[in-house]
Amino acid sequence: MYTSSGPVDASVESKAGSVKGRTALVTGGASGLGEAYVRALVKAGAHVVIADRDEQAGSKLQNELSDSTTFVRCDVLSWKEQLAAFKKAIEVTGSIDIVMANAGIATNDQVFYNDISRDEPEEPDLPVLKVNIIGVVLTAKLAMWYFEKQNAGENKRDRCLILKSSMAGYLDLHGAPQYSCSKFAVRGFMRALRQQAALGNQIRVNLIAPWYVKTPILSGAMDTFITKSGAGFAKAADAAAALLCIVSNDSIQGRALAIVPRDWEGASNGYVDLNQDDFEDSPWMHRAQEYALKPAKYAMTSTDSEGNPLKTAPRQD
């Protein structure tokens, strides 16, 4: 079972020496936070595969960073295109060590909007749920497969998957049900993956949860709202530093680092460990978690305690 190692000391600046010579894949890496992750990883000595559907921006970034990057056109909702990006990473460097599941979108949300002048309700479009959940799940599926396959051979070493959620996965957020739902989902997905990793497959899974950062995904209206609120903006460079902190320290497992304004308490480097997913102050929740995981040694394997093949049936809750 996953065991908490305690919060990350975010007051200590990360050292990226262990990143040199490794290969990273960043979805949505052509702009915004993804671009910041790519630049930081390249500066630290990694080769980065930029997986993004924006061919113009991706090619431009690859040309600027030269031989340190490889751009692959990739829509994260396409299993075929994501698989091609992972295959390209193996083709170019022979290894995949770091995967940053960064790609995500935010749009005007139709879920709470109802035009009652119409005779019938309109079916809402749900692109945010699709990209921010399904896209991340596909990336994680591929990362886990390649990590486990590589670690089963002689090329065994630390390999790390980082999921991008948001502070919207921890806070109430007005008017954005799809976005909030998707980011809460990624948070829950990380919890499931860290339990799977605890079974001994030598894979680390962590999460980055940004506060508002001035990137192309941030609308003008939201920019104005945050400015007037006085909360301040987080910085893309600090998100990149948090990423390097995670990938450079192989003891960091199952943690969620929030990217927040530096003038917030305890955030001198622009990020803090949220320390919200391990029920530190709730013995009751610890007990419930223990009960929930007791059958895990059967549920997560293909055999029972006596080595007999398991036969599973669909659950009907």
Rank of each mutant, 00 (worst) to 15 (best):
A36M: 02
A36C: 07
A36F: 00
A36T: 02
Y37G: 00
Y37Q: 11
V38M: 06
V38N: 01
V38K: 10
V38S: 11
V38Y: 09
R39Q: 12
R39E: 08
R39F: 09
A40V: 08
A40G: 09
A40F: 00
A40Q: 04
L41K: 08
L41I: 08
L41V: 02
L41T: 01
L41H: 09
V42Q: 06
V42M: 09
V42T: 00
V42F: 05
K43W: 02
A44D: 05
G45T: 05
G45S: 09
G45D: 09
G45E: 07
G45K: 00
G45H: 05
A46H: 02
A46T: 04
A46V: 07
H47L: 11
H47E: 11
H47P: 03
V48S: 04
V48Y: 01
V49H: 07
V49Y: 07
V49K: 11
V49Q: 09
V49T: 13
I50D: 07
I50M: 03
I50T: 08
I50Q: 11
D52K: 04
D52M: 02
R53C: 13
R53W: 13
R53T: 11
R53G: 02
R53F: 14
R53E: 12
R53H: 14
D54W: 10
D54K: 07
D54Q: 04
D54N: 11
E55F: 13
E55Q: 14
E55Y: 12
E55R: 15
Q56I: 14
Q56N: 14
Q56P: 01
Q56R: 14
Q56M: 13
A57V: 01
A57F: 08
A57M: 06
G58V: 03
G58P: 00
G58R: 06
G58K: 03
S59F: 01
K60D: 13
K60W: 02
L61K: 07
L61C: 08
L61R: 10
L61P: 02
L61D: 01
Q62A: 15
Q62N: 12
Q62S: 15
N63L: 14
N63K: 15
E64D: 14
L65A: 00
L65D: 00
L65W: 08
L65C: 06
L65G: 04
S66Y: 00
S66P: 00
S66I: 00
S66D: 14
S66T: 13
D67Q: 15
D67P: 00
D67C: 06
D67I: 13
S68M: 11
S68N: 14
S68D: 14
T69W: 03
T69F: 08
T69H: 01
T70Q: 10
T70Y: 10
T70I: 12
